[in-house]
Simulated scan of single mutants.
Amino acid sequence: MARSCSARLHGEAAAFTAALRSLVNNPQFSDVTFVVGREQQPVFAHRCVLACRCQAFRGMLMSHEDPPNSVPPQGPFVMANVQPEVFLAVIEFLYTNSVTLNSHIVLEVLTSSVEYGLQDLCKLCVEFIKDTLNVEQVCEALQAAVTYGQADLQQHCLAFIESYTMAVVRTQGFHELSDTVLARVLRSDHLAADELDLVQAVREWAHVSSAVLERPVPEVAALPVQELRLPLLAPNELAMLESQNQQDLLIPVSCGVPRSFLGTSWGRIGVPTLMSPSGQVDSIAAAWRSHALRRGSGVPSHLCRPRHGTRPRNHHRHLDPHNK
């Protein structure tokens, strides 16, 4: 008696995918309708496809209160907070396991992929973002990467910002960064910008954030300012910074400390680290102190470390912890 055997054989994948793609937003045989975006655009779909491909849609489409044999409602289900093009990209992925992306929608598709628990779609979005990243989009991509815990995309965006820092800080996306993400950027040693330029970029960001959030400049800028490396600035630049700071108090300052007290006599009398009224280190006073002592004493070592784009200044040799 011949032994039976079995095997799973596959037909042409492209033809199968094309057939399923023809069902995307096709009213024929559709049994569920969505009304999408401000345009209230109808999108037609097939309940069985959505339910078997996505747990979130399965929960949306099932009605636990109806009898088992009843016909579930066809909708329409209102999806007001998503663009039709974005929603259709998600639907395309569910039907075909592929997606058509462009730079205008990819971040929103990434958001939807996270909301719907579609990990494979999330990976495709991340790969597309990495392959097409540009100056105008990188900050928004970084913000999304941090929000959704995409560590690989975070690193990719940070490396891009490090290479094109001065172009990036002029973009609208830079001004829309959250304070925590901006602080993370400013921790980098590899930014291709001088510290004076970074101070100005943070000042412009703070004024935009202050207007949007309706909060004082010192409050919105508290985290990023702690990452500015003011000891790298020359005395004349610090003096200019003090003058600018009187206008908006971007950088916290301690009360009751005469400017003359921040000169060369500081090194002889051993003044402790100054604190602002908010409890933060007075960064400007600490920078003056590093000049007076001709070393970075009392200042966190990373704040004395030149970045990739820092313009050399004569006093930097005194900040080098290896210099004797």
Rank of each mutant, 00 (worst) to 15 (best):
A2K: 15
A2F: 14
A7I: 10
L9I: 14
A13N: 09
A18C: 07
L20S: 12
L20W: 14
S22K: 14
S22R: 15
N26C: 10
P27D: 05
P27H: 04
D31H: 00
T33F: 00
T33M: 01
V35A: 15
E39N: 04
Q41I: 13
V43N: 06
R47T: 04
R53F: 01
C54R: 00
A56G: 01
M60G: 03
S63T: 06
E65V: 08
D66L: 14
P73F: 01
G75T: 04
F77S: 13
V78I: 14
M79R: 12
A89T: 03
V90L: 01
E92T: 01
T96N: 00
T100F: 10
S103N: 15
L107N: 07
T111G: 09
S112L: 09
Y116V: 01
D120N: 14
N134H: 02
E136N: 09
V138A: 08
V138T: 12
A141C: 15
V146D: 15
A151G: 12
L153M: 12
Q154H: 05
H156R: 15
A159C: 13
T165P: 03
M166V: 09
T171K: 08
T171H: 09
V181G: 03
L182R: 01
L186V: 10
A192M: 10
A193T: 09
D194P: 06
Q200N: 14
Q200D: 14
A201Q: 11
E204L: 10
H207E: 12
V208T: 08
V208Y: 11
A211F: 07
R215E: 11
V217H: 04
E219V: 05
A222P: 01
V225K: 00
E227M: 14
E227I: 06
L228A: 07
R229L: 03
L230Q: 02
L233V: 07
P235S: 02
L238N: 02
N245G: 06
L250W: 08
P252Q: 12
P252I: 13
V253G: 02
C255K: 11
V257E: 08
R259V: 11
G263F: 02
G263I: 04
S265L: 10
P272T: 13
L274Y: 03
S278T: 10
S283N: 12
W288H: 15
R289Y: 13
H291K: 05
H291Y: 05
R294A: 12
R294N: 11
R295H: 11
G296E: 06
S297N: 14
S297D: 15
V299I: 11
H308T: 06
R311S: 15
P312V: 05
R317L: 07
D320H: 09
